[in-house]
Design a protein around this nucleic acid. Structure first.
Length: 217
DNA sequence: CACCAGGCAAGTA
DNA sequence: TACTTGCATGGT
């Protein structure tokens, strides 16, 4: 079976096994963007605590985040880890939003997808995964998000090699599937779901819904 | 105690 | 270019 066919088959199997994941767990677009930054290399649970702190302070707004001091912001997002760096990242994003779009989220979100992606990648603190999460989950563009789970699962199932790059993996999905925002949303969430319980650094393959048999490859 | 979590950038040679 | 290191809290 071709790699593209297997990519399509994995989706059916995962959806059958786990059902809809209901991502992104955030209410408005700014909250989704903040979540994308705060969850970098951090459990969603901890990122959520940071988001809740910001919410409690009424800070999920462009003006709020623009006016708060860096140090206060850092303290509020402590639970998400790397809080000093992430405070700078949030400030960098808000600075970008104000400078490029006059602080108008709607204007930013209607930017052409490719242009928007390359602009996001110029912000210090926003790399490919965070940029694509913003494009998919906040801007609702059909862009596939690749994360460490995606890499690990594809590697373990021999669909990619160790050296495969972010963009190559992304293209693998985007060339195999219809360009559908809802599908990409669900697929990424399902890969995270699978990765959380099975495809960790210490392999747990027995009983994997993808039925990978390490002795039969 | 060790190890991991929905990354990214900067430093070194 | 190709490695390596720093960032940091909270859960298992």
């Amino acid at each position: 079976m071709s790699t593209h066919q297997r990519i399509r088959e994995f989706y059916s199997v995962l959806y059958e096994a786990y059902g809809s994941q209901g991502w992104w767990p955030g209410e408005d677009t700014l909250e989704i963007i903040l979540g994308a930054i705060l969850t970098q290399n951090t459990s969603w649970k901890n990122a959520k605590k940071a988001i809740d702190n910001l919410k409690r302070e009424g800070l999920i707004s462009v003006e709020g985040l623009r006016l708060i001091s860096l140090d206060e912001l850092a303290q509020l997002i402590r639970p998400s880890g790397y809080y000093n760096q992430k405070a700078v990242k949030v400030k960098n994003f808000i600075g970008f939003l104000v400078e490029e779009y006059g602080g108008d989220l709607g204007k930013m979100l209607s930017e052409d997808t490719k242009r928007f992606r390359s602009k996001l990648l110029r912000i210090r603190g926003i790399g490919p995964e965070t940029a694509d999460s913003i494009l998919l989950y906040a801007a609702k563009r059909p862009v596939f998000v690749v994360d460490t789970y995606t890499y690990r699962i594809l590697l373990r199932h021999n669909l990619i090699g160790e050296e495969t790059t972010y963009e190559e993996i992304q293209n693998l999905f985007m060339d195999s599937l219809p360009q559908d925002t809802g599908l990409f949303n669900e697929y990424h969430a399902l890969l995270v779901k699978l990765g959380k319980e099975r495809c960790r650094k210490k392999p747990i393959c027995k009983g994997c819904p993808l039925e990978y048999d390490p002795h039969n490859v």
